[in-house]
């Protein structure tokens, strides 16, 4: 049956809407091969239509199958693109290596270009009034207090604060730090806020 493999691809990616799967390079190649075969068969049959009018319907069917494959592939790549966009906002501009290997090379290049775009946009905000840009990825929720109490969940190492102080972040150590410094780390899961 036509277009079965693409559907499998899509079903797998729908199963985990919250994380991104590794890029299924092999499967995509197979699908492209299938499309190529269909196209060649269609070409042959289209040329043969002049003699046998009934082959025209077959050409229609194969053409629909080709369009269907194309649509599914595009949808797969688009959904991955949306997920990669979220990755930038959640993980920050540097991806940890185990996330990096889930993306294909082209996807990673897209990610870096998106990051650059975002950075130049953020820098340009408020330039007419004299600010050197606003970081949009922090304070995604309205902040409630200047300082917050956090406990560290992993051995992160040294964290340098903006006034030069160095804090040693070890597993299960508790700190009371300015919210602006800790926010990115809380979003990345290194620190956990205590209420």
């Amino acid at each position: 049956m036509f277009a079965e493999k693409v559907i499998e691809l899509l079903k797998e990616s729908e199963r985990n809407p919250d994380t991104i799967d590794p890029f299924k390079d092999e499967k995509i190649r197979q699908i492209l091969e299938e499309m190529q075969t269909l196209f060649i068969m269609n070409m042959n049959d289209a040329n043969a239509t002049t003699e046998n009018k009934s082959l025209w319907t077959t050409v229609q069917v194969r053409h629909s199958a080709l369009e269907r494959n194309k649509r599914c592939l595009l949808a797969y790549l688009y959904s991955r693109m949306e997920k990669i966009k979220t990755l930038r906002w959640e993980f920050g501009s540097v991806l940890p290596p185990d996330v990096r290997e889930l993306l294909s090379d082209d996807e990673y290049e897209w990610f870096s270009r998106y990051s650059t775009n975002l950075a130049s946009y953020m820098r340009s905000l408020g330039q007419d009034i004299g600010y050197s840009g606003i970081d949009l990825t922090e304070n995604l929720r309205p902040p409630k207090a200047l300082y917050m109490e956090v406990v560290c969940t992993t051995d992160y190492g040294k964290l340098e604060l903006s006034d030069g102080d160095v804090v040693m972040l070890r597993r299960n150590s508790r700190h009371f730090l300015p919210a602006a410094e800790c926010q990115t780390l809380v979003r990345q899961g290194v620190l956990k806020q205590i209420v």
Binding site: Y147, D165, S173, R174, H175, F176, L177
Partner: peptide, 12 residues
């Protein structure tokens, strides 16, 4: 007291 006056601390 520290929270009221925004004194950063590390508790061990």
């Amino acid at each position: 007291l520290f929270k009221c006056d925004n004194i950063s601390y590390t508790l061990v």
